[in-house]
Nucleic acid binder design. Structure first.
Lengths: 345, 345
DNA sequence: TTGTACGCGTTATCAG
DNA sequence: CTGATAACGCGTACAA
């Protein structure tokens, strides 16, 4: 009852621990211990098992391991925009915060469709993910998934509206402040702020940071007020034309997004203004394809989304270990200088 | 030996079939059949089980199901660029080709790093994915993962270099042809082609399609030759300036990418040319943020990546069912007209 | 040091 | 129509 009943040549299927054990001439238990570095295994035996495993190209079945460990080694990533640009860096940061060996990422694109989201959620839960990261398409608060999911959840980029949940977001206020601070350090005094959709909380947060910093420097917003409209190049162009009429002495524009900044740049050039010599321009997002292709390349505020993803993963890992957290954590943005800003000589 | 030994209040853990069965007062086997719509179950019984399941908010453990079914209901998505724009639509198309209920997507970002790729591959395989979709960051052929992975593989966007593998890609030749065809239908006769990196096979494919169509119309490439350099706005601007000198009668430009097209547009405007009245411009990629923000909005060729993802998923599903395929399948691109092209009145 | 036996949650077979 | 029971692949007390 040893060698005879084993290795029934299971065609195609990946080798199992049983086959490894059989080949090494030991029991399954011993093989398991040997491969997992457990003690109470003779080193000679361990060697034999290891060789057998290598020979068979054995790779343990993570599903089976998960069954006994009561842990799948998998986290769900629920996103609202897969084509959008914001969830990707987050995802990427998250992915390498837990190494690929320990944890895999199950992706689900909810597309802002509530019912689709519920479907995906069920699917993820039935796969017994150890935790969930939810990343929104807009930086504004979103409805909580609830507390009774059975697994910890971390919201990234877009916070949950329930303070009981754990959220990590970019600090838009500090980002706005950082942008204006840079312009002031460049010696600019007549600084306008053209930003996007006024229904976005992020617009107001960035504007608030900007105005705060202006006020500290004894300055007012050029053009008389923050200009809200939409996150588009067209609006950037239009706003700039207005601005140029109202404020001939304009020497800097803080745009609420890189798209808007592109519009600002184009309108400025068209009006014969030199950038950055006469007017400096700074954007927000550090959307590479936009920021590096412009004329001149765009200085901008980077919301450090990859870092957000990293932190989200860390928080989630802690929560999985049992140390849950609450509330919204805001992380600093980063200034990326290119050529659209420069000191006023 | 019935109700007594069950429901030991397993704190926190999701309910199991056993608990559902206990609550409904039936055996596990019956509960399973009832929930799975199997026959040989009294409808009253079925009702009771269903209610119990609902009450407990039961959701079957997919890992356990996978163990017995020898199928995880999971596919791996191995991508080389998560931030890049090309893999995302593919991923999205794939994701909804197999409904979220049937199949979940395990994401892995290899980042063009070979060793990292191997790691991810092992992780995916140990999770017993039923199949693999590999999507590259560039449309050029990439090294095969090999045939002995134990699961079917489909390469999307970037084909495998092994014809034995199954690949689905965008038809760049047809795309180039489509672009020029559109320009010709608009009555243009002096058509230039400014494209990107000459080390990309895609540049040459698109150019080939373009030239073929030109030749059919008895036309030659304006400027004397296809202009290769890099996939950047700056090149688009530079090339256009050159072109304007060499070919004063220029009435259309086919740009090899939307980034290049943006540059072309800017240089044209700067030279006082009206688009599309005097010169028509068409891009390639349909990269929304670029194509809709430009002045005027850009007509472009959409490689239909989402469709590619869909087809990849379909092919993979077939292969999983046992009907494997081989070779490279090229899928048509789509013309998206905006305002940068128009008939010459 | 090694092996036996059980359990993880589910499905399928077969006997009642 | 219903219920034991045996897998699926693995980890781990516990016994030898």
């Amino acid at each position: 009852m040893s060698v005879d009943e084993v290795a029934p040549h299971r065609r195609g299927r990946p080798p199992t621990l049983r086959e490894v054990a059989a080949m090494a001439g030991v029991s399954i238990a011993t093989a398991s211990k040997a491969l997992n570095g457990r003690q109470h295994v003779g080193s000679a035996t361990r060697q034999r098992v290891q060789s057998a495993a290598d020979a068979l190209n054995f790779s343990p079945n993570a599903l089976a391991q998960g069954m006994v460990a009561q842990r799948s080694g998998t986290v769900g990533l629920l996103t609202s925009d897969l084509v959008g640009r914001f969830s990707m860096p987050v995802l990427r940061g998250a992915e390498d915060a837990f190494g690929s060996e320990k944890m895999s990422v199950l992706l689900a694109d909810a597309r802002d469709d509530h019912i689709r989201q519920q479907h995906h959620l069920r699917a993820l839960l039935s796969r017994r993910v150890d935790g969930l990261i939810v990343v929104g398409a807009q930086p504004d608060p979103r409805p909580s998934l609830g507390q009774d999911l059975g697994v910890p959840v971390v919201y990234a980029y877009a916070p949950s509206d329930d303070p009981q949940d754990m959220s990590v977001v970019a600090d838009d206020v500090a980002g706005g402040r950082l942008a204006v601070d840079h312009l002031i350090r460049c010696g600019r005094r007549t600084i306008a702020h053209v930003t996007g959709d006024p229904t976005y909380g992020a617009s107001h947060d960035r504007a608030r940071g900007a105005v705060e910093r202006l006020t500290e420097a004894g300055l007012a917003v050029a053009g008389g007020e923050v200009m809200y409209d939409s996150w588009s190049e067209a609006w950037g162009r239009g706003a700039t034309r207005l601005l140029l009429e109202r404020e001939p002495g304009l020497d800097a524009v803080f745009a609420g997004s890189d798209q808007i900044a592109r519009g600002v740049l184009d309108a400025l050039l068209e009006a014969g203004k030199r950038v950055p010599e006469e007017v400096a321009v700074i954007g927000f997002d550090n959307w590479e394809v936009l920021a590096t292709g412009s004329r001149p390349p765009l200085t901008t505020i980077d919301p450090a989304l990859e870092n957000l993803g990293r932190v989200a993963a860390l928080r989630l890992a802690s929560a999985i270990e049992g140390r849950a957290g609450h509330g919204v954590e805001a992380y600093p943005c980063r200034l990326v200088t290119r050529s659209s800003t420069a000191p006023l000589h």
